[in-house]
Amino acid sequence: MIKVENLSKVFRTEEVETTALNNVNLEIKEGEFVAIMGPSGCGKSTLLNILGMLDSPTHGKYHFCDNEVSSLKEKLRNTFRKGNINFVFQSFNLIDELSVYKNVELPLKYLRYDLGKKKKRVLEMLDRMKIGHRRNHYPQQLSGGQQQRVAIARAIAPNPKLLLADEPTGNLDSKTGLEVMNLLSELNAEGTTIVMVTHSERDAEFAHRVIRLFDGEVTMESTKKELTQIEY
């Protein structure tokens, strides 16, 4: 599904040039659950943004479902992203002014779902995330775990092929975090490809494979099996 070749990202300001990613190569198959780990500033989020087509690389190639998308303009990237990729963020990124229902409805609105289908799907997602009873509430009225469930409901509402999660449990207590990770695993089991950036080894255990980054380079890749053998 995803093939990245010699991918680099350089941030330039007037005075400094920072290499966030340096010749990254990786491949992610459909249905996989991959965790990206590494210390702060190693380029995890930058890689996730490029994979999510929110950003474009400075060099290298990025194939998404056999389409080369690295050099696409924003408008085309947006077209590719729409309905295919969605995100779950550490800070939930819900819109405060919109109700839970409206937040979940957001991607469907941009995909021009018809009214009936849209409603059905939103309610389905809310029920699935066990948040249906809160659909008329606003994000500030919910706990962190509930907010993240809304965010996941919104992310999976258009049934994306790829779900990108950036520290999805970073703002949650361990119990709620576990619930969220179980939800992501369930989604993966149902066929959604998941790429997750995390600092948490526990969360990484839910992934099939872990990619470790350091200073913008892939330093190690390990499968779940290998992962369980590593001693900390």
Binding site: L54, E74, R81, F87, N93, L106, Y110, L111
Partner: peptide, 16 residues
């Protein structure tokens, strides 16, 4: 600004 980012991440185009 942030809301705009969220909307874009959820598929909104610049025009929308």
């Amino acid at each position: 600004t942030k809301e705009i980012g969220i909307r874009k991440a959820n598929g909104a185009s610049s025009l929308e």
